[in-house]
Design a protein around this nucleic acid. Structure first.
Lengths: 238, 238
DNA sequence: ATTGCGATTTGATCCAGATCAAATCTCCGT
DNA sequence: ACGGAGATTTGATCTGGATCAAATCGCAAT
């Protein structure tokens, strides 16, 4: 997303922030009706296509957002092009790093998504003013920290097969279907590789291996079925 | 640390928490004089030897602490024994995971250390009551999250040499000497391996390689000198 | 339907780091 | 000073996953 353009849009909008309320967004869920109305006057509901960069690594944090639909990937890239996905976020997560000027990572829509965009200054003021918002963002930060550390174990100590199984398990847990036994992958093979610290070839080979073992079925390139979730879980050494 | 024993000690102490104040601990730095005095009556200053387990993975979070001296490692272990260090904490960091019943990781003193121990219930009440404490712990959680994600990049995408250089750089940045060009390693080779997702043999080989290249001098097994910090930094691809 | 191109899979080979196996080094207790 | 045991280094070899190289698939544009 282009920063200058987004600021123009923020100013021009005047509708209340209904999308977040509907999804119990982290931000809107913590605000009073009055605050919600003030925030709504300056916020913007925005559709972003898969691949759209919401925040660029190294750019100024000039706005924050709530995801209301879709999946966002957080990514770090090195100067020589190597890159690592360091987090996946799902609705209704908050996106952004409060209280730091420059972003150390990029946030990019992994699927088509919808976000609710808030101007930085207004939101930071509300965080400092509103205990419940602070508490709620603190809770999300702690949850993300738990997830990041769990993933550090996966990156540092699990085999390729365990890594792929871990990813499928993670996606299944966040899938929107009730059963979560069949789901769409929000990531391409290249993105999966960047999340797992592997190459696309290894990811592909491990997926076909899991398929041949009967642990998963690959309905098509982006759609997986897991006949027996326990069999998948057994692939991940605890 | 034995949980039952620590609770007895907490109850029996009645001195104010002066060690934290001196080090501007995350907790004590955020409290008023009155709160400090209440907290002090229920807190405990405690020396722990290197290797002492402060929190056990899977145990109940029944207290929190502030580090006032030394280094604490956060560690996750798998049922088959593989383990991964997922964070290092230095004075005056806060140790513990507020608002969650069971710890998903262990915290262990990496060096001889001193911590200030608070009972869980009292501290959680103070977090909810005291905006400044909430803010301060939120800030620490966000910093730890940044550090965890930076380390995910290291674990997933850097080579063994870059990993070892990254670790030395990290330690140097937290060293207590002003120059930080010479420092003690708070970790054994085995712990370094568990932090970097490598084996001890690879860690040892990369250290001697950096030594032979003149990037570091190994004064003795736990003490490193870096003649030129830029040369070390150049080993870490950005 | 056909073409074209990027994404994915599959195959062949390579190599960074793991594993197995000794030497050394450190340092503690006697 | 003298064991002795664990920690560290060094050496030899192996291997999981990377790299290089082709197919093959999926699908959008014509």
């Amino acid at each position: 997303m282009d920063v200058a353009r987004s600021e123009v849009l923020v100013i021009s909008t005047s509708v209340a922030c209904r999308s977040c309320q509907a999804r119990h967004g982290v931000v809107c869920g913590a605000l009073s009706a009055g605050q919600l109305s003030e925030l709504g006057r300056h916020s913007l509901r925005r559709k972003v296509d898969a691949g759209c960069e919401i925040i660029a690594q190294g750019s100024e944090n000039s706005f924050y957002s709530n995801i209301t639909r879709g999946v966002v990937k957080l990514c770090k890239v090195m100067s020589d092009g190597r890159q690592q996905i360091v987090g996946l976020q799902f609705a209704p997560d908050f996106v952004g790093r409060p209280f730091v000027r420059e972003s150390t990572l990029s946030a990019e829509a992994a699927t088509d998504a919808e976000i609710c965009v808030f101007p930085r200054n207004l939101l930071e003021r509300m965080i400092l003013e509103t205990r419940e918002l602070q508490r709620s963002l603190h809770a999300q930060a702690l949850n993300e920290l738990d997830a990041a550390r769990e993933w550090m174990l996966t990156l540092g100590r699990r085999t390729a097969e365990e890594k792929v199984a871990s990813l499928l398990h993670l996606i299944a847990a966040h899938a929107e279907t009730a059963t979560s036994t069949a789901f769409d992958l929000p990531l391409s093979r290249a993105e999966i590789a960047d999340f797992l610290g592997l190459t696309i070839e290894t990811v592909s080979r491990q997926l076909t291996r899991l398929r041949k073992e009967g642990v998963i079925r690959i309905e098509n390139i982006r759609h997986i079925t897991v006949p027996d979730m326990d069999a998948l879980a057994k692939k991940i050494s605890g």
